[in-house]
Write a protein that binds this DNA or RNA. Structure first.
Lengths: 190, 190
DNA sequence: ATTTACGTAAAGTTTAAACTTTACATTGGC
DNA sequence: GCCAATGTAAAGTTTAAACTTTACGTAAAT
C-alpha cells in the first residue's frame, strides 16, 4: 500500500477537506478553457472560490507559488469577465479580490463580453464584403462565371449574417434573463 | 497614394471578389477561438467555406502554404466539431472534405461536444467531493471551526451542481431545437 | 517633501504549442 | 503478390505563450 492511497488509514479531517477542494479546483481549472481562460488562471479562480475572505495579490501568489505579476494579470483577466470583484477594505492599501458567486451571471457575462465582441467583428467584415459584392453584381459587364461566384458568395454571407443575428438575439435573452423563463434555474438539482 | 490603396483605380473583378473573401476569412479566423479553435485552423475553415468543391489535403496545403500534416490535424479538429464533413468521391483515393453549411447546427454541436464534456468532468469531481464532505459532516467529533468550513463548501458545491444542471438543460433545448421556439431563426435578418 | 508600499509595465527566460520534415502503416491498383 | 499513393504518427524545429525578474510610476503615510 503506497502512501498516496490512504483509504484504510484515518485521514485528518483537514486533509479530507483540502483534498475535496483540490479535486474541485483541478476539475474547474481543466475545463475553464471553455471560457477562454488558461489553466493556471483557472487555478487562481478555484483558489479564490474556496477562500471566504477577499485575497490580496500577495496572498494569491503565496497560495499558488507564483509571482505577484502573474497574479496581477490573472486577476485582471478574471475581472474583465466579471468572474471576480475588486473589494475595498479599510485599513490597508492593498487591493482585495473576491469571487463573483453568481455562476449564472458569469455565464451570461461571458457571452455578453466575448461572444458579442466576436460577432460584432465578424458582422462588420461580412457587411463590408457583402456591400462590395452587391456592387459588383450590378456591373453590366460582369462575366457570367464570375457572376455565379458572386451570387454564391452573397448567399453565404447573408446566411452568416442571419446566423449572427440569431446568436445576438439569443444573447439578448441571456442578458434580459428571459432565458430563465424557458429554462428555469432550479429543477431537481442535487 | 500608396499601392495598397486602390480606391480610385479600377480593380479587376476577380480581385474585388478575392479581397471580399479574404476579409471575411480573416475575421472568421480571428474570432474562431470562441470555439476553442486556433487561428490557422480558422483560416482553413474559411478557405473551405468559399470553396464550392470538396477539397483534398493537398489542395488545402497548397491553398494555405502549409504542410499536409498540418492540414490533416487541422481537418481532424474541424471534423471533431462537425464543422466539416468527409465526403467520398469516386475515381480517387484521396479523402475530400467540405464545409458543414449549417451554422446553427455548428453552434449546437459545439456545446453538445465541448461544453457537455467539461460539465460532465466538473460534475463528477463535484459529486465525489460533495459525498466526502457530507460524510465528514456526519462525524460527531468534527471540531466546530471545521464543521463551519465543511458546511460552506457543501453549499458552494451544491450551488455549482445546480448551475451545471441548468447549463445541461439549456444545451438540451439546443439539441432538441426547442430553443428556436423561443429565439426564432430568421427575423429581420439582413 | 520625502519615503515607502503597491500594482503593473518592460525585458528576459522558460515552457508549451504550432508547424515541418521524415518515416511508417495501410489500402487500393496492377 | 508487389508497387505506389495516401494519411498520420514520431521526432525535430520554430514560434508564441506563460511566467519571472527587474524596474518604474503613482499614491498614501509620515
Amino acid at each position: 500500500m503506497e502512501k498516496t492511497s490512504q483509504s484504510n488509514k484515518v485521514m485528518p479531517y483537514e486533509q479530507v477537506i483540502s483534498r475535496a477542494r483540490d479535486r474541485v479546483v483541478d476539475a474547474l481549472a481543466r475545463n475553464i478553457d471553455l471560457y477562454g481562460i488558461t489553466l493556471s488562471i483557472g487555478h487562481l479562480y478555484g483558489t479564490l472560490l474556496f477562500q471566504d475572505k477577499p485575497m490580496t495579490l500577495d496572498q494569491m501568489g503565496e497560495a499558488l507559488g507564483m509571482s505577484k505579476t502573474s497574479m496581477s494579470t490573472g486577476v485582471r483577466t478574471l475581472l474583465d469577465l466579471n468572474m471576480v470583484n475588486k473589494v475595498w477594505m479599510k485599513g490597508t492599501r492593498k487591493d482585495h479580490y473576491e469571487i463573483e458567486p453568481d455562476w449564472y451571471q458569469n455565464f451570461i457575462d461571458y457571452f455578453s463580453i466575448r461572444w458579442r465582441k466576436g460577432i460584432d467583428d465578424n458582422t462588420q467584415s461580412l457587411r463590408k464584403s457583402l456591400q462590395e459584392l452587391i456592387c459588383l453584381q450590378n456591373k453590366e459587364d460582369l462575366p457570367e462565371p464570375l457572376r455565379e461566384m458572386v451570387e454564391k458568395d452573397i448567399e453565404k454571407i447573408q446566411n452568416a449574417l442571419e446566423y449572427y443575428d440569431w446568436v445576438n438575439r439569443l444573447i439578448d435573452t441571456f442578458e434580459s434573463h428571459e432565458i430563465f423563463k424557458y429554462v428555469p434555474k432550479n429543477e431537481g438539482a442535487e
